[in-house]
């Protein structure tokens, strides 16, 4: 099982990001679970969402305390106490930032991979919603689930122009990170449903 925690702010599509990631895994024949930790439901408030992906049914309902991966939709949250807490040794952090990975790692003192997801979203969607770009980068880094699964998951939720623009966006975002960089981190391996 891998466990992912997504941090962002209300309005950035955190819950949708969690649902899309779990949906992509389910489409690929895996088991998954996604749920938010709701707080005040207003734009700008910090929001956390959780995803588990596994080769067998996910039964536990507790929050993810020791994630294998963190997806941080707002760079400023990287400096908020508790956000990176519990990350497993050797885990990965993906951050939405205009700074490069090396630069952001130096500045933050944490080993992170960055993606200018807001800029990409502005370019392709015309609005600053970084979630799908980050998911595409995450799947590309992991190389466990194909980008096509994310396209299918998006297709279950969106249609028309929104879907087409998101598909273009995720392909652009995927080329912004090194494929398979986190392949070894995505352990223990999970296998598909029989």
């Amino acid at each position: 099982m891998i466990e992912v925690r997504i941090h962002g702010r209300g309005g950035q599509g955190n819950v949708v990001a969690a649902y899309l990631l779990a949906s992509a895994a389910i489409i690929e024949g895996l088991f998954a679970q996604a749920f938010p930790a709701f707080g005040a439901e207003r734009r700008g408030a910090p929001v956390t969402a959780f995803v588990r992906v596994a080769g067998q049914a996910v039964r536990r309902r507790c929050q993810v305390r020791q994630p294998d991966f963190l997806i941080i939709q707002d760079e400023a949250l990287l400096y908020v106490p508790g956000v990176t807490e519990g990350l497993r040794a050797g885990g990965g952090i993906l951050v939405n930032s205009a700074q490069g990975s090396a630069e952001l790692s130096t500045v933050s003192g944490k080993d992170v991979i960055s993606l200018p997801a807001t800029a990409l979203a502005n370019q392709f969607l015309g609005k600053p919603v970084p979630n799908t770009a980050l998911l595409a980068a995450f799947l590309t880094l992991m190389e466990r689930l194909p980008l096509e699964a994310l396209v299918k998951a998006l297709g279950q939720r969106f249609k028309g122009e929104v879907l087409e623009n998101n598909v273009r966006l995720i392909h652009a975002a995927a080329s912004g990170v090194t494929p398979g960089l986190w392949r070894q981190k995505a352990c223990p391996l999970f296998t598909a449903r029989p």
């Binding site: 389910i26 998954a32 679970q33 749920f35 938010p36 996910v58």
Partner: peptide, 12 residues
């Protein structure tokens, strides 16, 4: 049905 814990959880 447990609110949020189930109602807002996506699963197969």
């Amino acid at each position: 049905v447990d609110g949020f814990t189930l109602t807002h959880t996506l699963e197969p």
